[in-house]
Design a protein around this nucleic acid. Structure first.
Lengths: 120, 120
DNA sequence: TCTTGACTTAGAGTTAACACTAAGGTTTAT
DNA sequence: ATAAACCTTAGTGTTAACTCTAAGTCAAGA
């Protein structure tokens, strides 16, 4: 039922160092422990970690994620704030995608030139 | 005709520090100098810089870009190698875009949940 | 029981990519 | 001709995000 840090590491691809680091930085609060102090991740922890990874992979910094997590821990009074934060982040990601498409065109052009054995 | 480092900085949004750093790291070889040793960027330099920025913004590291630049300086015998390198990079960028779309869905879902005033 | 291996915390080390400072030379407008 | 605003190089400092080490605890198998 509950997973050890190694199992979570294998499942997510994050190193055990990173998992401890994220916890220390406040990105993964309330991870339970066994009687002897060993981390045991619940299903909820894993789902939460999924969201954290999603935000991280889309370019949110650890500091920004911590801010979001803190809003979450403040209960339902911050629901609107959290939604706005995510909407803003979503717009950033969309912009980033558009930017990437623009750069892809440039790379394609360069590849074309090289395929024709010309410098450009 | 030729631009000073400050003009290039304003045009590209890169700081003068970064421009010198990129040059030192081998990303922008052959930038000319005035008699007194001041950098003067040609049109060709600016175009080259455009490609460097494109690669950088799409996630290529400075080390990787340097490798690419070194291939360029080895002449036409490396045309195929350069093309392959860019094709591979292009594929990486395309994968990254797909990944971003996947994450966008997840963020959208979360925004939906928050809009309905539910934790999820 | 003893060893092996996985876990713990605290803290130090690493890397990439800048950002800045110091000490000094150059250019330009008044 | 001198002050202000540029520029130069060499080298140091900073930041984020890990990555690892040390010293010790704990659980399971031979």
């Amino acid at each position: 039922m509950k997973a050890t840090i190694k199992q979570v590491s294998e499942k997510t691809g994050l190193s055990t160092y990173v998992l401890r680091y994220y916890e220390k930085e406040g990105l993964l609060p309330h991870v339970g422990r066994s009687e002897s102090g060993i981390r045991l991740y619940s299903e909820a922890d894993l789902e939460w970690l999924g969201l954290i990874c999603c935000l991280k992979k889309t370019g949110m910094s650890i500091k920004q994620i911590r801010d979001f997590v803190e809003l979450c821990s403040q209960g339902s009074s911050t629901l609107d704030q959290r939604r706005e934060l995510l909407v803003e982040h979503k717009e950033n990601v969309e912009l980033k995608i558009q930017e990437l498409y623009k750069y892809l065109e440039k790379i394609d052009c360069k590849i074309e030139c090289l395929a024709r054995e010309r410098a450009c």
